[in-house]
Amino acid sequence: MSKFDFNQLWTGRVDQGESPELSMRLHQWIKPLSDADSTGLAVLGFCSDEGVRRNQGRVGAALAPNQIRQVLANLPWSSQYPVYEAGNLVSTYQDLESAQLQLASQVTQLLSQGHFPLVWGGGHEVAYGSWRGLADYLAINNPIPQIGIINFDAHFDLRTPIKGANSGTPFYQIAQTCQEQGWPFRYCCLGVSEMANTQALFQRAKALNVSYRLDKQMSLLDLPEIKEQLQQFMAQCEHLYLTIDLDVLPASVAPGVSAPAARGVNLEVLEPLIELIRTSQKLRLADLAEYNPNYDQDSQTARVAARLFYSITGGSHE
């Protein structure tokens, strides 16, 4: 776990002359995890872009967690739900697999303490560590955990890790682990781009019974049908893990990502779907991946990521 200056990252505006209880911002509310006195939301950074490098993408996602925190700091926050800072886990060069297992251990610990972990990647290699942490936690009391993975992403990320894990392999890794353990593999990928996935990946998705939807099938007019597909998928699952690759958004909305999308899915479609997942009472864990500050413009993508954080957590209105 890397050390960083909590007070330097979590600082921001303090509104004067307003009702204090109605003028709180997240930096005034969040506490270090070491000061936790009750269960709550735990924010954890996964500083890794080794998976992106191995996948021949644009590196820089390792810088994302701290950059996003600086944007999150000024979010209005009046919720009575505690929020804790769990620090950063750093993936050192060429040690990705160990970092994924360290992340899994940290997520399991947070869940065991009763917290809701929200993990900031990093590349989408974060997904295997996040999922593994939830699976290990659930397997303590249930030998066959019933987890549904919902991924908003332009990519299936079902590639075979021939030369080690990378940002394009996490859900194949999960599928393999499920097969080894005799667990069901339930995966829903929404926003898939035909331009970003080979026919081999579409065939693998079909063989693994993946529920998916193309980006061109995710307009506002499609929203009722998408909700129905999502509801049917969630009904099969006892627990949900939500992961969002920011490259699912149009490049004009999220330019600061490892692989910008030519088309993408708009926020006006994503946000109602996230609300549907959040209010299902089954969501146990979430992460966001592939933000790359090196290619962002005026922190635009970081602000989008902060808005998605707000959608996942319910913001200040829960």
Rank of each mutant, 00 (worst) to 15 (best):
G17K: 08
Q80Y: 07
Y137I: 01
A62F: 06
I226V: 14
L283K: 00
I144S: 11
P161H: 11
K216A: 02
E180S: 13
L158A: 04
C189S: 13
T108A: 05
V304N: 04
F4S: 08
A261M: 03
S98T: 05
Y128H: 15
A196N: 14
R263G: 06
A262G: 10
L230G: 02
K227D: 08
A289C: 13
L44Y: 10
A306E: 01
R307N: 13
N142Q: 11
V71R: 10
V253G: 09
N88Y: 03
C237L: 03
G129N: 05
G40A: 07
Q232Y: 09
G123H: 04
D153P: 03
F152C: 04
L221W: 06
S316M: 14
E238T: 15
I277K: 05
D15K: 08
R278L: 10
A42T: 07
A305S: 05
Q94S: 15
N166S: 13
N66F: 03
Q106Y: 10
L242W: 00
R303W: 12
Q8F: 13
L75V: 07
F116A: 06
K3S: 09
L101Q: 14
Q229D: 15
L63H: 06
V248W: 03
A254Q: 05
I150P: 00
P255Q: 09
G17H: 10
Q113C: 08
K3D: 09
G164K: 13
A196M: 15
R53F: 13
N151C: 05
A64C: 14
T11K: 12
S311V: 00
P82L: 01
Q231T: 11
S219K: 04
S105T: 07
Q236E: 14
P293M: 11
S280V: 02
F171A: 02
S311D: 09
A61N: 05
D136T: 08
A207R: 12
Q146K: 08
K216F: 10
R307P: 05
N142V: 00
I174V: 15
P76I: 05
L63I: 06
L214P: 00
L288W: 02
Q232T: 08
G51T: 03
K163L: 09
T301C: 14
E318C: 09
A135H: 03
Q100R: 14
A64I: 12
V119D: 03
V71P: 10
L26T: 12
E290M: 07
Q28D: 10
I244E: 01
D15S: 12
T301R: 08
K31E: 12
L75M: 15
L220K: 13
S258Y: 01
T39Q: 13
H239P: 03
S252N: 11
